[in-house]
C-alpha cells in the first residue's frame, strides 16, 4: 500500500529525514516509534503532502505521490489524523464529520456518516453537540471518524494516545487494530511504545532521521538491546 524509499526531507538548511525506508501493507497496523525530535512529525508531513520530499520516493497504491499537494494525496486515500486531535471545537460533531468528506457528493457523505456512526456509537449520541464539549477520548474518536469520512485506504494516526487516560488509549488503539482487520492499512505514529507494540504487527524505530530498527512488534519487544537503546524500557 505504502512504500517509502530513501526519503529525505527537511526545513531550510536543516535535513531532518536522512534516508527513510518504510512499508505499510493493506490490513496491518504498523507502528512508527521514536523519541521527540526523531523526525516523526516531519515524516508525517511529508507523507501527507504538506512538505515536499528532497529525495527518495513515496509510492502509494503503486503510484508515486511525493510532491503532490495535500489535497491530491488525500484524494488518493492517504488520510492523516493529526496529533492533538485538531477538531473543529465550535462546530457540532455532525459538522466535523461531514467536513471530513467535503470532497464527496451529498449521498456519499450521508452513507459515510452512517458507516462512521455505526463504528462510534458514542458519537451518534452526541451529533448535535459542539465538538469542544466532548471528552478527550471522544475527541480522538471524532478525529479518527472524520478521517474515515474521507474513505481512506491508509490511515495515518499521529500520536492518538496523547493526553488520554491509559484505558482510553487502549480503546483507541484497539479500534485502530479493528480498522486494519477490516482491510485498512494503519500507520500508527506513537511515543507510547508498549501500547503501540501491543496492537501493531510490525514496527519501525526512527532515530535522528533514520530507521534505527525495524521488524515484527514481538521481536522488537523481545530484543533487550533495542529495548534499552530506543524504546526506553
Amino acid at each position: 500500500m505504502l512504500e517509502v524509499r530513501e526519503l529525505r526531507a527537511g526545513y531550510g538548511p536543516v535535513e531532518i529525514l536522512r534516508g527513510v525506508d518504510l512499508d505499510v501493507a493493506k490490513g496491518e497496523v504498523v507502528a512508527l516509534l521514536g523519541a521527540n525530535g526523531a523526525g516523526k512529525t516531519t515524516l508525517n508531513r511529508t507523507l501527507s503532502g504538506l512538505l515536499r520530499p528532497r529525495a527518495g520516493s513515496i509510492r502509494f497504491a503503486g503510484e508515486p505521490i511525493g510532491g503532490l499537494s495535500a489535497e491530491a494525496v488525500l484524494a488518493r486515500g492517504l488520510v492523516h489524523v493529526p496529533e492533538g486531535r485538531r477538531i473543529f471545537a465550535n462546530l457540532t460533531v455532525r459538522e466535523n464529520l461531514l467536513l471530513g468528506a467535503y470532497r464527496r457528493g451529498r449521498a456519499r457523505r450521508r452513507a459515510n456518516l452512517e458507516r462512521v456512526l455505526a463504528l462510534f456509537p458514542r458519537l451518534a449520541e452526541r451529533l448535535g453537540q459542539p465538538a469542544g464539549t466532548l471528552s478527550g477520548g471522544e475527541q480522538q474518536m471524532l478525529a479518527i471518524g472524520r478521517g474515515l469520512m474521507a474513505e481512506p485506504s491508509l490511515l495515518v494516526l499521529d500520536e492518538p494516545s496523547l493526553g488520554l487516560a491509559p484505558m482510553i488509549v487502549r480503546q483507541v488503539l484497539e479500534l485502530a487494530a479493528g480498522l486494519a482487520r477490516d482491510g485498512l492499512a494503519v500507520l500508527l505514529v506513537e511515543q507510547n511504545v508498549v501500547q503501540a507494540l501491543a496492537v501493531a504487527r510490525r514496527a519501525y524505530v526512527l532515530e535522528q532521521g533514520r530507521i534505527a530498527a525495524a521488524g515484527p512488534a514481538a521481536e522488537l519487544l523481545a530484543d533487550d538491546r533495542l529495548r534499552r537503546l530506543y524504546l526506553g524500557l
Binding site: S69, I87, R146
Partner: peptide, 11 residues
C-alpha cells in the same frame, strides 16, 4: 474554525 485541522483534511 481551525487551519491546522483544515490542513489535515487536505485543505
Amino acid at each position: 474554525e481551525n487551519e491546522e485541522a483544515a490542513s489535515a483534511l487536505g485543505v
